[in-house]
């Protein structure tokens, strides 16, 4: 197997990254934690990954403070590979009802809103609805109380109380509302495919 290029996991200072790194190790992807804008060197890293831990406002404040917000935007504008998981998907949008008044990275138009789900938080498995055979019907694990209800470039949706966006792909950007790192073999396969 040819070695895959390195992934820069962005330090959002908002949660535990054990599961994510364990998963990347299982799928044999080399990854490092990046804590500052200077470290984000595109001759070293092929892909930037924003992990799915923490709340919207907390993550954005930390990224603004470390200067990583601007570095992530610049990375995206160059069309390089960028992946967001859970809150990592949400901060690609303009704002969130979770923390009103704090701007997201605004790479994508739209806002994150409270999920009107029968039980909250949403913790569990759902099947993806997608026109892509690599996603459709796959069971993946969700942990969230907020979600994006509509967006362009949606690659899969799910329904729990109401429909919401499960994944997005746009140019170099790929984002998942679910946690592929906790979604068994199917999740590993989804993550491996977008890191390949």
């Amino acid at each position: 197997m040819s070695p895959l290029k390195k992934v820069a996991v962005i330090d959002t200072g908002a949660g535990n990254l054990f599961s994510l790194f364990a998963c990347l190790e299982r799928i044999e992807v080399e990854a490092e934690l990046v804590t500052s804008a200077e470290q984000l060197d595109d001759t070293i890293y092929q892909t930037l990954l924003i992990p799915g831990q923490g709340r919207f406002g907390n993550v954005m404040e930390n990224l603004n403070q470390s200067g990583l917000s601007e570095a992530i935007k610049a990375w995206y504008l160059k069309g390089k590979n960028i992946i967001g998981i859970c809150v990592g998907l949400q901060i690609f949008f303009e704002s969130s009802e979770e923390d009103e008044g704090i701007a997201g990275l605004s790479l994508l138009k739209g806002q994150v809103s409270k999920l009107n789900s029968p039980k909250q938080p949403m913790v569990g498995w759902c099947s993806l609805q997608s026109s892509s055979s690599s996603l459709n019907g796959k069971s993946v694990y969700f942990v969230n109380s907020y979600a994006v209800k509509n967006s362009v470039n949606v690659t899969s949706k799910v329904s729990y109380g109401e429909d919401f966006v499960a994944s997005i792909a746009s140019n170099g950007l790929t984002a998942f509302q679910f946690h592929p790192e906790k979604s068994g073999k199917q999740g590993e396969e989804i993550l491996r495919r977008c890191l390949g």
Binding site: K119, F142, S159, G161, E162
Partner: peptide, 15 residues
């Protein structure tokens, strides 16, 4: 709480 278990999208997969 209203329970409407018959609606498919009101339940996650039974774990």
């Amino acid at each position: 709480k209203k329970k409407s278990k018959n609606r498919l999208n009101d339940r996650l997969k039974s774990r």
